[in-house]
């Protein structure tokens, strides 16, 4: 049972690491601000959730698990608002420069 739990925790950590890696590659490789945000928010949401869930399983304590859940919720909230602000700004910059919406200088 303990082995199974550890394996599941490790799997969750690996999934989280994969989403962070994918998000970082997207941040570097994608052409404009909106698609970069698209890549990055996936890392923020699912990547952090997986890592928090994996860490909670490894800790094996309800208190730690709840704290990790709180961390995830706060990070999610902050990331949502900042992604929203960056997206609005990039749209406005694109309108100002007369380019297509979404294809903005970053």
């Amino acid at each position: 049972m303990s082995l199974l739990l550890d394996a599941f925790a490790a799997l969750l950590l690996l999934i989280g690491a994969f989403f962070y890696l994918a998000g970082t590659v997207g941040l570097i490789r994608f052409p404009d601000a909106l698609s970069r945000l698209h890549a990055l928010t996936k890392a923020d949401n699912i990547g952090l959730l997986s890592i928090c869930a994996g860490s909670a399983l490894m800790a094996g304590e309800l208190r730690v698990a709840l704290l990790l859940l709180l961390i995830w919720l706060m990070a999610l909230f902050a990331a949502t608002v900042s992604a929203h602000l960056i997206a609005r700004r990039s749209l406005r910059d694109a309108e100002d420069s007369g380019a297509d919406a979404g294809k903005s200088p970053s």
Binding site: M74, V81, L85
Partner: peptide, 17 residues
Amino acid sequence: APDTPLLTPLVVTLAPL
């Protein structure tokens, strides 16, 4: 200050926290 409806929930949540 950016005019977006998200700011008020952000501030009222984060400030007391």
